[in-house]
C-alpha cells in the first residue's frame, strides 16, 4: 500500500504540507494526505506522531500554521471560524474516543443537536435522530443519559450524532480506544458499513492494526509527517 496519496484528481479532502505546533511541541511537520470520496483511510503511527492533530486539521477544527487544507476543491483552513463551523456541521461528522456526548442530554437529544443547528424543527429532528439510533442498533437507548451507557453504546450514539446530517466525511479519533476488542469490532463494523452505505468517506485515527484493517488504505505518520521509508532521514 502506498501511503501518501489517493487518486489525486478526485480527492475530496486534500491536506498539503501542514505544520502545526502546540507550544514548543511540533505536532505536524509538513504532513500531506488526500482522501477520496467514499474512501476509508486510517491514520496510524506511534504516539505523538501527529495523527490526531492531522485529523483535527483535516476536519477544520484546528488551523495549521503553514500548508493548506482543501475540501471539495476549496480551501477551508483560511476560512473564518464561523464559516468553518457551519461547514463542519453540514459536511463533516466527528467521533472521539470518549466523553463527547453532552452529559445532560439524553442519547436522542445528543443526536438531535446537529439537526437543531440546521433549524430542522423539534419534531423532525427527533424523528430523524430516532431513525439513526435505530439504524445503529441503539433504538432502546434513546432516553438514556450518557452516564448510564456502556462504552460501546456511547460510541453508537456518538456515531449516530456524527452521521445524522448525512456528512461527506466522518472523522473518528480512536473510536474504539476505550473498548474491548469485541465491542470495538462492533463499533467499527457499524461505522464502516454505515459510511459505505451513505457514501461518506471515513478518516480514522488508530493505533490498533485490526481497526486499521477496516480501512481501504493506511497512512503512517512518524514525527509529524507521512512516513516514507524510502527517504533516509
Amino acid at each position: 500500500m502506498t501511503s501518501t496519496d489517493g487518486s489525486g484528481a478526485t480527492a475530496l479532502l486534500r491536506a498539503h504540507a501542514l505544520h502545526k505546533s502546540f507550544g514548543r511541541t511540533e505536532a505536524l511537520r509538513g504532513a500531506s494526505v488526500e482522501v477520496a470520496a467514499g474512501e476509508v483511510v486510517a491514520l496510524t503511527g506511534p504516539s505523538g506522531s501527529g495523527k490526531s492533530t492531522l485529523l483535527l486539521c483535516l476536519a477544520g477544527v484546528l488551523r495549521p500554521e503553514a500548508g493548506s487544507v482543501a475540501y471539495d476543491g476549496s480551501r477551508l483552513d483560511d476560512l473564518p471560524e464561523a464559516t468553518r463551523t457551519r461547514l463542519r456541521r453540514r459536511e463533516f461528522g466527528l467521533v472521539l474516543q470518549f466523553g463527547q456526548l453532552v452529559p445532560e442530554l439524553s442519547a436522542v437529544q445528543n443526536v438531535m443537536v446537529p439537526l437543531l443547528l440546521e433549524r430542522h424543527g423539534r419534531a423532525a429532528a427527533r424523528t430523524a435522530a430516532l431513525a439513526w439510533l435505530d439504524r445503529l442498533g441503539a433504538a432502546g437507548l434513546a432516553d438514556a443519559l450518557p452516564g448510564d451507557l456502556s462504552g460501546g453504546e456511547s460510541q453508537r450514539v456518538a456515531m449516530a450524532r456524527a452521521l445524522v446530517t448525512g456528512p461527506s466525511v466522518v472523522f473518528a479519533d480512536e473510536p474504539t480506544g476505550s473498548l474491548d476488542r469485541v465491542s470495538g469490532e462492533d463499533v467499527m463494523e457499524v461505522l464502516v458499513s454505515t459510511a459505505q452505505s451513505t457514501g461518506a468517506a471515513v478518516v480514522l485515527v488508530t493505533h490498533d492494526n485490526r481497526v486499521a484493517a477496516y480501512a481501504d488504505r493506511e497512512v503512517v505518520l512518524r514525527d509529524g509527517a507521512v512516513d516514507d521509508p524510502a527517504v533516509v532521514r
Binding site: 492494526n209 485490526r210 486499521a212 484493517a213 477496516y214 480501512a215 503512517v220 512516513d227 524510502a230 533516509v232
Partner: peptide, 22 residues
Amino acid sequence: RDARPFLAAQRALHLERMRALV
C-alpha cells in the same frame, strides 16, 4: 543494512493480509 524499507514493505503486506482476514 537499513532494515526500514524491508520492515515498511512487510508491514504493508501484513496489513493487506489483515484487511483480507477482517
